[in-house]
Design a protein around this nucleic acid. Sequence first.
DNA 1: ATTTTTATTTGATCGAGGTCAAACCACCTT
DNA 2: AAGGTGGTTTGACCTCGATCAAATAAAAAT
Lengths: 226, 226
Amino acid sequence: MKTLRLNSNDRAVLLGSCFFGKLPMAATNAILDDVVVSTHEEHDILFGQGEPLDHVFFVLSGLVRLYRLGKDGREADIAVFPRGELFGESAMFLGNRATANAQTIETTMLARIDSRKLRKLAEQTPEVADALMQLLCRHAQMAEDCLAEDRLLTAPQRVASYILGNCPDGITNFSFRLPFQKNVLAGKLGLAPEALSRAFSALRRSGVTVKGRVIEIHDRQALERF
Amino acid sequence: MKTLRLNSNDRAVLLGSCFFGKLPMAATNAILDDVVVSTHEEHDILFGQGEPLDHVFFVLSGLVRLYRLGKDGREADIAVFPRGELFGESAMFLGNRATANAQTIETTMLARIDSRKLRKLAEQTPEVADALMQLLCRHAQMAEDCLAEDRLLTAPQRVASYILGNCPDGITNFSFRLPFQKNVLAGKLGLAPEALSRAFSALRRSGVTVKGRVIEIHDRQALERF
DNA sequence: ATTTTTATTTGATCGAGGTCAAACCACCTT
DNA sequence: AAGGTGGTTTGACCTCGATCAAATAAAAAT
């Protein structure tokens, strides 16, 4: 892990992100002033459940996985954060302790924001507080969505739902590239890789073609019905 | 559903709750000033997923269930809120639309807080914003905990975990009363009632006794190992 | 291009838990 | 005491997805 300064590309990613995008410039600058940038190899462990954690992370590039460990060593993914996402914010409100493990999935650049400073800024700047609340809310929703899907949908249905989530409304014919390995998608959907593979092959009958990382949809309706 | 005013017992519940407990008196009073109280029969539907929702609910007494519907009509519980809990807050940040269905589980009294007002108050009062962030955070945690447990633990392990969550640390011999029907516990744990029943009977071997709603633990270690 | 490594698919097996039906039980009412 | 009513338990069966092992495919390294 190497420590660097923010370059202009990093700034662009930060300013274009959902979180920083709607903050007043003054607040953004105050935060970015003493941000620390670090680079990580793939599979680097960022923090572990229960460990002290006094900053919030922003993904400048790469991919990070949040997960919990079972006592038998098995892992359950809680969330996957691509570039532009902020994570680790819940520790800020829970005694500065991480509530899960975090690991990079690929080579990743992160910006670290001091949580004390962010929290203080939120006290003084309603827009920051509001942005934080929206972030927390979105993360809560993500977890609730996952929970509901796990409980209500079969593996092929969850995969169909994931695909549809990446397909603009009203379009019936569509294709896109997975932003990560199938491996990772499987974890995100709470499936073993084998189950994901089988789910894809079950969806083939409903007009889904998979070539490497590229997914093609030929019949949106069929997917929705699945 | 009948509409009432806050009585002194209601105020006590509100003031003793996790959310209002740490607010400055002025903020609490501002909120309570135009709270609306309503009573509901059991199984009353409070709101449905996607519907407009312009207030936040506080449980004065009774029990409320948040759940999502699958397209086949099956239901997946997201959370269960007993007296003293605030819920429905996420709609505030997501365009005033409910993200799930809510239903009373038993006869219930609710206080409704206007979300516009609460949000405005949060802008002006850092303590309110902070309390809201902690609430959102706790709810996000609850969902993540559920998700992780669903993915990592078997039915008996989830039940064991629930029991241990109700048992003070360091005590080996313990007994408590379920705060709701087994029915409800099953839903909360993402199990069919039959599966909960079987889980209990699997735990009997580890020193758990179930008599009606009363759960007795005779060997904490055995439960932890399960 | 060839080898090595890593990711994905396929096959076979197994177990957890859902579902349906029936029995059981507790608590009410009459 | 008899009869409801609704929650809970038990039994039987079956489906989904985990797991293990092996085959393939794709990527990276030489």
